[in-house]
């Protein structure tokens, strides 16, 4: 399922057919837009329209699904065209987006066979306005046994100032050169955003937790 809301300057909400159907089904089931004889409650439709409008003002992109290349390409192009602001901020957006997307593609416990015969992690990515700045947030499933490790990694990154982060990054580069795993993704997000990472998690069953990672990009354009 692809959910794609694109907006920023023109207040246009772009909805794929699938999500429109999905949201309507959800509302039909939960709010009874239609009564049993199929009569549509106009007030509820109006409410739904207002909800879309609100969403269009706040949300730049909301996407749930896999993060294989074909999807990344559509999202990246939309990010580029939906930002009229300066190109440096656009570049920051693009980098933040790719780092977050890679993070989900690799680390989400919900690995899905994509149409390209590859596996990609699935998750949720939201980019929204936040008090004049931009908030990037992702959510995906991970094994609960990984949570402590991720929290430790994030706490370490958050404890470092920019210079220390860069020294840490150079150490990570050396690790990847020798073919070892690195912590570069989250580290890059901290460096590009210039902000702390915010992590939250909640167990969903005995094995998995839903983890959200977010960071704010200041609007310095």
């Amino acid at each position: 399922m692809i959910i794609l809301f694109i907006d920023i300057k023109k207040n246009i909400v772009y909805l794929s057919k699938i999500i429109t159907i999905d949201i309507f089904r959800f509302w039909k089931e939960n709010n009874k837009i239609m009564d049993e004889s199929g009569h549509v409650d106009k007030r509820k439709i109006e409410f739904l329209e207002n909800f879309y409008e609100l969403l269009s003002k706040e949300v730049i992109i909301a996407y749930r699904g896999t993060f294989e290349k074909s999807v990344l390409s559509i999202l990246a192009t939309n990010i580029e065209s939906s930002l009229e602001t300066n190109s440096i901020l656009r570049r920051k957006f693009f980098k933040m987006f790719l780092e977050f997307a890679q993070n989900i593609a690799i680390y989400s416990a919900e690995q899905i066979q994509t149409s390209e015969n590859e596996k990609s992690g699935a998750g949720l990515l939201i980019i929204k306005h936040n008090n004049g700045n931009y908030m990037f947030a992702t959510g995906n499933l991970v094994e609960t046994s990984m949570i402590d490790y991720i929290n430790e990694k994030v706490d370490h990154i958050n404890s470092l100032d920019r210079e220390a982060l860069r020294i840490y990054k150079r150490e990570q580069y050396k690790l990847i050169e020798s073919g070892e795993k690195s912590n570069l993704g989250l580290l890059q997000i901290a460096l590009i955003s210039g902000n702390q990472l915010i992590v939250n998690s909640k167990p969903v069953d005995d094995t998995f937790s839903f983890i959200t990672i977010s960071a704010e990009v200041p609007n310095e354009g």
């Binding site: 570049r91 693009f94 980098k95 790719l98 890679q102 580069y173 990847i176 050169e177 690195s182 570069l184």
Partner: peptide
Amino acid sequence: LSYVNTSSSKHVLY
């Protein structure tokens, strides 16, 4: 290059 992802950066370093 204006963006180099992790797996590419290894090769840039090489």
